[in-house]
Design a protein around this nucleic acid. Structure first.
Lengths: 210, 210
DNA sequence: CGAGTAATGTGAAGACTATCACATTATTTC
DNA sequence: GAAATAATGTGATAGTCTTCACATTACTCG
C-alpha cells in the first residue's frame, strides 16, 4: 500500500480530518458518516471515502466511522503516533513567535534546537528554556538533540544555504517559511509556508472581481 | 480574458515569478528565457509560457522576455500595482510578529488596523505605531481605515466568528492563519496559511520512506 | 427473519492541470 | 539576404485528481 501513489492533496486532507475528528472526540461523538464529516471539513463526502480507500477500509457500511478508531488510524498513517523534534533556524520575530505558538506542542511537535548567527542571540535562552545555538554548530546539535525536521525562518537570502546545511546534517524534512523556492535532493521533503503568495492571490481575486 | 477560467495554481506561480523577476531586475538582467526563469522558479518552462498565455503575449519569439516589462505586466495582472490595506485580528505572538515582518511592506501590503479582545492590549500601540482596537469596533474601524483584507491570527475557536464580522464589514479577502476551515459567502475569498498541515505532511513523508 | 433504510467502498466518468512537440517568428552570421 | 539558431505561443497528449453513481453490506423494526 505504500507503493500506491498517494496524492499530496490526500495527505493534506487527512491532516484536516484529524483535526475535525479530534474535536468530535472531545464532543464525545462516537460515530460519524462521511457526509457529516465532509460538511465540517468543507470537502466532498466521496473525497473522504476515496482518500481513506488508499489506505484500507476504516468504516462500517450502513453505519459510518467510529470517531476514535478513525482518528487513531489516520494518525498512524500520517506518522503522528510519535513525537517529532523540530530545529528552528532563524530566531527573529517570526521564529520566536512560532516557538511560543501552542499549535505545535499540541500536535506532538517539539522544538529541541534553535539556531541563529546573531552573537547577541547565541547563548541566550528562549522563554521555553531552549538555548539558541550558533548556526556553525548545526550539524553537531542536530545529531545530539535528534532533530528530525528543520524549520527555516531566516531571511530569503540565507534560506538555501541553511537548507544545504540541514541536508548535510541528515535532515530529511524541512518546513520553509522563507519566500523562496529552495532546492534540495530527493531524499529531503520540503514544504513551503508562503503567505506572500497567498496575499497576492487574494489581491488578484479582489482586483479581478471588483 | 477575465472570463477565462484561470487555475489557482497559475496565480500562485505568477506570484513566484514576480519574486524571481524582481531579483533579476535588481541584478540588472534585461532579458530572460522561459527556460532560465523556469529553472530559478523550479517549474517547467512550458508551464510558464502556458501561465502567461492565459493573459496575452508578453515575450518575443527567438529572444525571451524583457524582465522589467514582464514584471510590470504580471504585477498588473495580480493587482499589485496599488497598495492594499490589511487589518489584523488577534494580536498574539504570531500576530505581532507578522505585523513587524518586513515581507508585507516590501510587497505593498500595509497594516492599517489591528484588533483584539484583551483589555490589556486594546488601546496600546504596536512598535510600528498602530493602535490596537477592540474587536467590537471592527466594523467602524475597517471602514474608516479602508481595510481591504482581513488577517486572522486568533485561536481557532474565535476564527469563524471573526470571519463573519469581517464579511459583514464588507471585507472580501481573508488570510486565515487559524487551523480551521472557515466558511464564508462566495463574495469573499479566503486563503489559509496552515503550517500544521504542512508539518503533518512532512511527518508522513518521513514515516513512509524511512 | 425478512423488508426497509442507511452509509460505505469503488469502478467509471468527468474535470482539471501539466507536459510535449512543433509551427512560428526574431535575431545573428556569413 | 539567405541559412542557421534561438525561444515563444499553442494544439494535442498525457497525467492527475475529483465527483458521480451504484453495488455492497450493516443495522433496525415489525
Amino acid at each position: 500500500m505504500k507503493f500506491a501513489k498517494i496524492p499530496m492533496a490526500t495527505i493534506s486532507r487527512l491532516s484536516i480530518y484529524t483535526r475535525t475528528l479530534q474535536e468530535l472526540l472531545e464532543e464525545e461523538v462516537d460515530v460519524i458518516s462521511s457526509e457529516r464529516l465532509a460538511k465540517q471539513c468543507a470537502v466532498n463526502p466521496a473525497q473522504i471515502r476515496k482518500d481513506l480507500a488508499y489506505f484500507g477500509e476504516f468504516g462500517v457500511r450502513g453505519v459510518g466511522y467510529r470517531v476514535g478508531d478513525l482518528l487513531n488510524q489516520i494518525k498512524e498513517i500520517l506518522g503522528l503516533n510519535r513525537p517529532w523534534n523540530l530545529g528552528m533556524v532563524g530566531i527573529g520575530n517570526l521564529g520566536s513567535a512560532l516557538i511560543r505558538h501552542a499549535n505545535f506542542i499540541r500536535h506532538g511537535y517539539n522544538f529541541t534546537a534553535a539556531f541563529d548567527v546573531d552573537p547577541q542571540k547565541v547563548g541566550r535562552r528562549l522563554p521555553n528554556g531552549l538555548m539558541i545555538s550558533h548556526l556553525e554548530e548545526l550539524d553537531e546539535v542536530v545529531k545530539e538533540r535528534e532533530v528530525h525536521i528543520g524549520v527555516i525562518t531566516t531571511p530569503s537570502s540565507a534560506a538555501q544555504s541553511v537548507a544545504n546545511q540541514l541536508v548535510l546534517a541528515g535532515i530529511n524534512g524541512i518546513l520553509n517559511f522563507a519566500p523562496i523556492q529552495i532546492q534540495v535532493p530527493n531524499c529531503c521533503h520540503v514544504e513551503n509556508v508562503d503567505f506572500t503568495i497567498k496575499l497576492d492571490s487574494i489581491a488578484y481575486h479582489l482586483s479581478s472581481t471588483a
